[in-house]
Amino acid sequence: MLSAESLKKIDYELTKYPADQKQSAVMSALAIAQDEKGWLTTETMDFVAEYLDMPSIAVYEVATFYTMYNLQPIGKYKITVCTNLPCALSGANEAVAHFREKLGIGFNETTTDGKFTLKEGECMGACGDAPVLLVNNKRMCSFMSNDKIDQLLEDLSK
């Protein structure tokens, strides 16, 4: 189900917790699974549940609670733009409008070529850098003016 490499990563996470409390690693395991698969299918969550010796519904609870887990197929790059107040005051709405125009999609939509998905995000704890966005949950981009957005999209499109 998951590649040997992913399993190795999950095993490493497991070493951080007592052996009889494997389920403590569920968040990292889901993140690792998502990195490999792009999004979390029912089968993937079932697999994680079995691997960590916990009920599948408990995995599902975690996966549905946190917004960074993707429960639907998404584009290659997920761009999450913060629209909370500090970002909004510093031009987040303009940034979103620029994305809409450039990509031709709104929030929670994916471009037809399957490259980009646009998401609305909540505060990412970097209000001084507003407006901020996240690429694929991992890469934080700050001060996103229209120019920088163009640059980002160009880099990612390569």
Partner: peptide, 10 residues
């Protein structure tokens, strides 16, 4: 002894 129901979403 078996968790069959859960609360999903938030």
């Amino acid at each position: 002894g078996i968790m069959e129901l859960g609360m999903v979403g938030r």
